[in-house]
Amino acid sequence: MAESRVVLHFPKSLLDQPVTSMAIERFNLRFNILRADITADQEGLMVLGLVGEPEKIEGAIAWMREQGVRVQPLEQDVVRDDERCTDCGACIVVCPTAALAMDTDSREVSFNAEECVACGICVPVCPPRAMSITF
């Protein structure tokens, strides 16, 4: 058994189709939804932990891609340049897992890499560009 974390980007055309659950059934996987951000008439985003045999996980990813889902594996890391970060807080509201958070007393922005799912949303949102993705 293995767990792979993936970010799924759904185009508008797929939002009314149960692509994820079909993939789970078809490849006999279990899953954890780490984050889902899907609204009618918009692109959707889901951060998913897929649990199962490694080759089944690969199969599910390949099948979802065939259906038109953009699948981004979380084999990447988001890192922060602490010198560049000004503790402004602009990133907090876009971080899907609260890996970026503000201490209400010190007003410092903390970055908890354990909580980060490396979705990369913070990278272009950070005004001084302190966040980057490494592969």
């Binding site: 000004t86 503790d87 402004c88 807080g89 602009a90 990133c91 907090i92 509201v93 503000m102 010190s106 007003r107 410092e108 005004p127």
Partner: peptide, 12 residues
């Protein structure tokens, strides 16, 4: 949720 754009840490 609220999010600031002005750094209070650096203001201090």
């Amino acid at each position: 949720p609220t999010t600031p754009l002005s750094s209070y840490v650096r203001a201090r």
